[in-house]
């Protein structure tokens, strides 16, 4: 009985964060800020829904076999979701999507420009040596 209530609460909690995540996709100004809301809220929402289903099943179906499986799924999701977000945001930056005009610093651009400068200098010195 009590596990049913906890499970229902967790699923509700998860769906609220799913809703906030999709709302953030509409409201945020550029791809980087959208990625922030989408990653965080969707991950926590999924954790809530998945673990919630496992706990709900204890009371509703009377089976303890669901909880370890949902737990494994939740751990895999928690480990892989940030990596996919990182790959997407890095690919977005590499393909030249600009930051929002309200952004205040961009250390990564400074770093890349410095690296390019170094490479050009080293190329020139090599040519000079040859």
């Amino acid at each position: 009985m009590i596990s049913e209530i906890i499970g229902e609460f967790l699923v509700l909690f998860g769906t609220i964060f799913y809703f906030l995540s999709s709302l953030g996709l509409i409201r945020m100004p550029d791809v980087y800020n959208r990625m922030q809301t989408a990653t965080k809220s969707a991950t926590l929402g999924s954790l809530g829904v998945i673990i919630g289903v496992g706990i709900w099943a204890i009371g509703h179906v009377g089976s303890y076999a669901w909880l370890p499986k949902t737990f494994v799924i939740a751990v895999f999701l928690l480990l892989t979701n940030p990596i996919s977000a990182h790959a997407l945001i890095r690919a977005a930056y590499k393909s030249g999507i600009p930051l929002w005009e309200g952004s205040i610093v961009d250390k990564y651009r400074e770093y890349l420009e410095k690296e390019e400068g170094k490479e050009e200098v080293s190329d020139e010195t090599k040519e000079g040596e040859q």
Partner: peptide, 21 residues
């Protein structure tokens, strides 16, 4: 997530983004 919820639901959208090292 509460932080994200605040930023998404707040009417003025209080964000101040940038890339730091």
């Amino acid at each position: 997530n509460l932080d994200v919820a605040y930023r998404v639901l707040h009417p003025k959208r209080p964000i101040n983004p940038g890339i730091v090292e």
